[in-house]
Design a binder for these strands. Structure first.
Ligand SMILES: [Mn+2]
Ligand SMILES: [Mn+2]
Ligand SMILES: [Mn+2]
Ligand SMILES: [Mn+2]
Lengths: 219, 219
DNA sequence: AATATTATTTAGACAAATCTAAATAAATAA
DNA sequence: TTATTTATTTAGATTTGTCTAAATAATATT
């Protein structure tokens, strides 16, 4: 099954939006891919033809087993390249997504597996997302919750959900990265903002929106 | 100037075929790119429009100064990725061209320069070809001749001209790589084949065609 | 110089990926 | 339940890159 770059991008976005078993809508996919609903419908017909998705008019899209397999390979390549850029080329975590978006389309199993080996077969990427292995298996992530719902006081950052440059740059500015230890000082009920201490530094207050996108587990 | 992958491939092939200042013909370019002359004519019109080439109907193609600059950037990326694949991922020299053909199209100066730095700013690629620096400057290659024209007896391999998998695999089989020392034992006038000794091994005879594609200099 | 051959271009077609505008279906509100 | 709004699809167009077949130009041969 030889996929074009456009087809791969669609498959990957369907995978991302599907989260378990739910159905992906035409509009959601168009928004995710920064394209138009009409274009998504066109592509859906093509991917259905190739048996990579299940799709009936007006009923939304889900990946077929083969589609899921393809998606996991693309995700694997994407996240491995992100690791390469951060670990070996000293890029910062907010710079790598865009580049990996292109590098992920070089389809060579040998290259992918050699790259993985070169990086020490990493199991999470620079944003805390798990990396599928050559067979598409991902390490089950250790239990984690978003910072706004955490009940323990002392926490360690395990991932970020929103990987926009804006959020990642904000976290850089506050000295927050994967593995950073946080202590919750206060919840403010008015706007659900949270006061936290990052290491020994003076406490800072972060908005609910930020807190929702930081994943943590008790230290 | 934002170039498509197809445009980049054309620019690079024109650069390759131009060798100095000669004019590139439609047919030669079509053959090099494994495409049809009519397609090359179409692309030539587009590249002329973008001022990357000089082109008049029936008069052949040459790169403009901007075209040459673009070509050198693509060649730089291609050769750096080849170095990466060989030096870091342990690919063999006959495997890397195809992969670099794709990787070269990721256009990020930052990535390119970081990659170069990571590799120790190499100046030749795994086939002995010089790597342009960030400004497009290439180290002037040390004087070298093809093996069939060498007059010294003890030689060192500096590059290969034909980089087809077939030739590179043949050289692997004979233990010949960049830096390998050779000694010419005999020239056979009948078919211009050459008897050489590779290191201490028993002498082997190679055809004129092979000899023409091995570049050497006196040891 | 006329003819034959080769190289190149043009004309017209096609597939992939996208778009806009219009039509239709599904979901929601009155 | 009917009307309105929202979501999705269809119809038809556009761009890019390619192709084949036919026309034309350039070159080589007789
Ligand atoms: Mn992508
Ligand atoms: Mn990531
Ligand atoms: Mn290429
Ligand atoms: Mn090379």
């Amino acid at each position: 099954m030889n996929l074009s770059i456009a087809e791969e991008n669609h498959i990957k976005s369907i995978y991302k939006l599907q989260e378990g078993d739910s159905v992906v809508t035409t509009n959601a996919l168009a928004y995710e891919l920064d394209t138009k609903p009409a274009s998504v419908t066109d592509m859906a017909k093509k991917l259905k033809e190739k048996k990579l998705i299940e799709y009936e008019k007006y009923k939304g899209i889900t990946l077929s087993p083969e589609g899921r397999k393809a998606a996991l390979q693309i995700v694997r390549r994407h996240r491995l390249w992100e690791c390469f850029l951060v670990d070996k080329l000293a890029f910062s975590w907010e710079e790598v997504h865009e580049l990996a978006e292109e590098l992920e389309h070089v389809r060579s199993e040998k290259l992918t597996n050699r790259l993985s080996e070169f990086l020490g077969n990493p199991v999470i990427d620079p944003h805390g997302d798990p990396i599928p292995d050559a067979h598409g298996k991902m390490a089950k992530p250790r239990p984690q919750t978003s910072l706004d719902q955490a009940n323990a006081r002392r926490l360690v950052v395990t991932a970020v959900t929103d990987q926009s440059t804006a959020l990642l740059a904000f976290l850089n500015a506050k000295g927050i990265k994967l593995g950073t230890q946080l202590e919750i000082m206060a919840h403010y009920e008015y706007d659900n903002s949270i006061e936290i201490k990052v290491k020994q530094q003076p406490a800072i207050t972060i908005s609910e929106q930020v807190a929702k996108n930081i994943m943590v587990r008790p230290v």
